[in-house]
């Protein structure tokens, strides 16, 4: 394990993700779509990603977020949690989500 790996935040069910200070969700009027703006890149989340991001307020844990999404989407909470953990890790690694 490198020192970099040791410092890498890992997405867990009790992580409470939030957007870092330099990242914000912005509704693009021209495209009629939500964009995730950071200083060096623009990300265009799909509907599912957007549902997740809107629940990332730093208070809810990933487990709680998945519980809400399971109700919204009438889907299996374990399947949702697997996907959300994988993508929270990916977004954290890309520094657009803080765990």
């Amino acid at each position: 394990m490198t020192p970099l790996d040791a410092a890498r935040p890992l997405a867990k069910a009790d992580s409470a993700p939030r957007l870092p200070r330099h990242v914000r969700l912005h509704f693009d009027q021209i495209r009629g779509a939500w964009a995730l703006l950071s200083p060096e890149k623009v990300l265009w989340p799909d509907e599912v990603s957007l549902s997740i991001l809107k629940l990332c307020d730093g208070r809810r844990s990933i487990a709680e977020i998945c519980g809400e999404l399971a109700i919204q989407y009438e889907a299996d909470v374990d399947e949702i949690q697997t996907d959300v953990l994988a993508f929270a890790q990916d977004w954290s690694d890309r520094m657009v989500l803080r765990l």
Partner: peptide, 17 residues
């Protein structure tokens, strides 16, 4: 309309582009 769960995707475009 009922929403259906799918793996979340995000398309990235560099700000410069």
């Amino acid at each position: 309309m009922k929403k259906s769960w799918a793996k979340p995707q995000m398309c990235q475009v560099s700000a410069g582009f």
